[in-house]
Write a protein that binds this DNA or RNA. Structure first.
Lengths: 340, 340
DNA sequence: TCGGCTTGTGAGAGCGCGCTCAATCGCAAG
DNA sequence: CTTGCGATTGAGCGCGCTCTCACAAGCCGA
């Protein structure tokens, strides 16, 4: 054969396959799209031609004609450090990719922090994507809320923006989960409990603090030992040190993420405090981070991977024209290990 | 204004903007693409119309006409666990995104392991992407080598496939770097040195073992204490235990990645060995993992983030029609901390 | 005054594909 | 032998955009 480099470069088109198979473009199109009404022998001939030419459909053309791109975007308004640093994202992404692998859609990951946000938005609204999943949504990311006007969007976690009230999202009951976690510490005999919170601009951070407060209020304990750990490991350590530096001792510590809890435990031990003997520590997530530290964390488990899976499944439903529940709340429970 | 939902859903087109501005489609296109030969007053009118209608170019149409998608793919033939588990990837991705943020391209991340590989390949060769970066290339991923026939590709790390000899890649000299790391242990007085290797199906794994061997050979030491750690933390721990179980004691351990080294150090300490007093441990990468363990790792530093940046820059050059060096070797050095 | 030039603009042909609609072919019923 | 119907197939339009080319002004020197 004399199919040379030049030929290989310019990808074969439907037209060329049609010519090679001796049929019309429409018929090749039918074969490619597995239309039932093509006679078997023609199907065979066309498939042979496709194979021979190494034909791959041009998705730009297809999506132009089709008005569908078969691409789903995962938008994460975080920087690389956060994305890769927190195993929570790993779980979410795994759930999503697992679910999508079984579909015809491919996944696009967008780290949409600050500068590139505008470019990302143009990309998302430019018809490149049939739908979007948004995870780790901060206040200040309002541009994402408007996304819903252009395409189907499913949020992982309740959106902060009040404008986005009718968004579809999948979340856990952060207030109740944090309440339960704190309650566990109380029931374990802690008499003075502090907390390391997540970011104050994220619902997960705000709601977990709220749950913590409620549990303490109910038990008649003060909820004044609060420090912000910003959902990072070093932040967790810093927050724990800050709490210790206030001079008031505590025997329970509720931390709003495992990653921060690992940092906090390290900080406590630096100061000579034993976990759980001197301070009982409750994490949140049950991410792999819970097991990386020197003390295995007792933690509030949230089903992150399952959440990712459900996010994807919900979006696929929407894209398939089905309805989807506006809000889905997933269950949490407490995993008891060493730290509390 | 009576621009209602229905209107907002079907995105405004060039045509509509043209009508609104009272000019032709071609002129609007020129404005959108910042062509210099449009009179200032027309530019202004068009931009006003664009703003008023909320116009965003349809990228499918654009890429169809243009034969360029302004999208770059990052292909990582790993599963989510590996990708998120190893800080090396975080650094690479950060470098790439930083560089791309300044360009007009957007990044697509593809986890192309096994089942979804075929779908990914179709995507990549379907004209959705102008170029690709491939990182963490294993043998067995031959499909990636053929990618170069369809579009510009830059590899992070020398490709394994001999067919891909003329690929463009950016790497470090793994043999020399491992040699240096091992040499450091020898110079530090170690008399019996073991190694935990990376995957045997990746150049990085193979070459680092080779460098280790050379250093020991040169010093007249046997290089028989070798165990595979598969580039994961738990794998590193397992490999270290395996080495200890052989009954032959060693006082130096060269580990082919920091992540594995963290696992190995944990394993050594479990067995009551002190690091660095009983066993000096040398890591590789200088990733954040080097600092997460109980002992800060002395390690061979490779400039991962810079490598990511360079990968992106090189691909942009290729896409811009410029030539690029077929192979670029980045420098490494040794960062001395506690473990050796 | 005219031809040549630059500069800005519009008309129109694709880019590769899906989809509608009409045409064709058998074949059984009337 | 004609009619009708289902099963296949092909012709051609349109998706939204870029780009080439031709055209309309406005300007210069001759």
């Amino acid at each position: 054969m004399t199919i040379e480099a030049g030929q290989a470069r310019s990808a074969p088109t439907l037209e060329m396959v049609a010519a090679a198979a001796g049929v019309s473009r429409a018929t090749v199109s039918r074969v490619v799209n597995a239309s039932p009404k093509v006679s078997p022998c023609v199907v065979e001939a066309v498939q042979a031609a496709i194979l021979r030419l190494g034909y791959t459909p041009n998705r730009a053309a297809r999506s132009l004609a089709n008005r569908r791109s078969m691409v789903i975007a995962l938008v994460v308004p975080e920087d690389t450090t956060r994305l890769f640093g927190d195993p929570y994202f790993a779980a979410i992404v795994k759930g999503i990719t697992d679910e999508l692998d079984a579909s015809d859609y491919v996944l696009n990951l967008h780290l949409a922090r600050s500068e590139s946000a505008q470019k990302t938005l143009a990309y998302l609204t430019g018809g490149n994507v049939d739908g979007a999943l948004v995870v780790s949504h901060h206040s200040g990311d309002e541009f994402l809320s408007t996304l819903g006007r252009h395409l189907p969007v499913v949020f992982g976690g309740r959106p902060v923006d009040p404008e986005a009230v009718d968004s579809i999202y999948i979340d856990i009951d952060n207030v109740a989960a944090a309440y339960d976690g704190t309650r566990y510490l109380i029931d374990a005999g802690c008499t003075r409990i502090a907390t390391v919170t997540g970011s104050g601009d994220m619902p997960a951070g705000i709601d977990r603090l709220e749950g913590f407060r409620r549990a303490l209020a109910e038990a008649g304990m003060p909820a004044d030992l609060v420090a912000d750990g910003d959902f990072t490991m070093t932040g967790g350590a810093r927050a724990a040190r800050e709490l210790l530096d206030r001079g008031e001792s505590f025997d329970g510590l509720f931390v709003a993420s495992d990653l921060m809890a690992v940092g906090a435990v390290t900080a406590l031990r630096e100061r000579g405090l034993r976990v759980p003997d001197d301070v009982k520590v409750m994490g949140f997530d049950d991410s792999p981070a819970a097991l990386t530290g020197e003390v295995a964390l007792t933690t509030v488990r949230q089903p992150s991977e399952e959440q990712g899976r459900l996010l994807a499944r919900t979006l696929l439903q929407l894209l398939g024209g089905e309805d989807a529940a506006r809000r889905t709340i997933m269950p949490t429970d407490i995993v008891v290990r060493q730290s509390a």
